[in-house]
Amino acid sequence: MTAIDTIPNLDRKKPLRPSQVVGRIALYATLIVLALFVLMPLAVIILNSVRFNDDILRESFIGWPTRLTLENWGVAWGEACINASCTGVKPYFWASILMVVPATVISTAIGLINGFALTKWKMPFAGFIFVAITIGVFLPPQVVLLPWAIALGWLGLSKSLVGLSLVHIIQGTCFTTLFCRNYLINLPDDLIKAARIDGAGFFRTFWKIVVPLSPPIIIVTIIWQFTFIWNEFLFAITFSSSDFRPITAALMSLNANDTGVSEYGFGSAAVLIAAIPPLVIYFLGGRYFVRGLTQGAVK
């Protein structure tokens, strides 16, 4: 889709009438005000992360820094107390990375090869499999929470990195398979046939034909899996313990503890540390992020 920048050609360049000039001004004013409103929460916590907590408490949570400090970032990263262990968010950040990276890579790889098998090979029950996978995408996680907890206990994986990653891989595979299927179904069958006539088997065709043509969908899938798993909270809180806890679960404990003192300064820095990885991915891969959103729906 290259239609992103083609605009309905309603009026060719003509000098604007005064009423139109007013309209344009109103248009931009509205957009700018709304954009500022959307940016406001992010701006507020960025500013608070470099303000002194005393200043925040004395002035307001919303305010311009009168003095600057970087101390909040250090405290949030390495010293802040979460559930009585004063390690900052550092171990939870790395726990999230250890969980998200393998789960994203594995579920994307499985999704791609599944999509290939589902679209380019005669498969018994292909329609049924497709429906089952779609259900998997929409199933409310609460319905499988208790069975997961019991099953992970049986496997000896309860509240562990491997257990939580397994949950994300299995749940994520429904999503990635659906995405990759919708992309690969538009790949010309002739390419696959030609390779098969040349004697290439399943894996060779996959590796030599499908993978080189799939970077767009691979990037979209990785971006969405990474963002989703990083931000996920319900499984993260249910299947983690003090030994292993993703950052979303730790953040909730950090900002929910009732010590009486409100530590907005390093609290803001901790919130930003948790938000930075998906935001970086969002701003780097924005084009693909949007494509992932619209592709699933327009098809």
Binding site: V38, M40, P41, L42, V44, I45, F61, I62, T227, W230, N231, E232, F233, T248, L251, M252, N255, Y264, G267, S268, V271, A274, A275, P278, L279, I281, Y282, F283, G286, F289, V290, L293
Partner: peptide
Amino acid sequence: LYPIAISFVVTGTTWQWI
């Protein structure tokens, strides 16, 4: 669009403060 990349935990915490 950027809010969609931000987790509900971060969204909820930030709006609680605001």
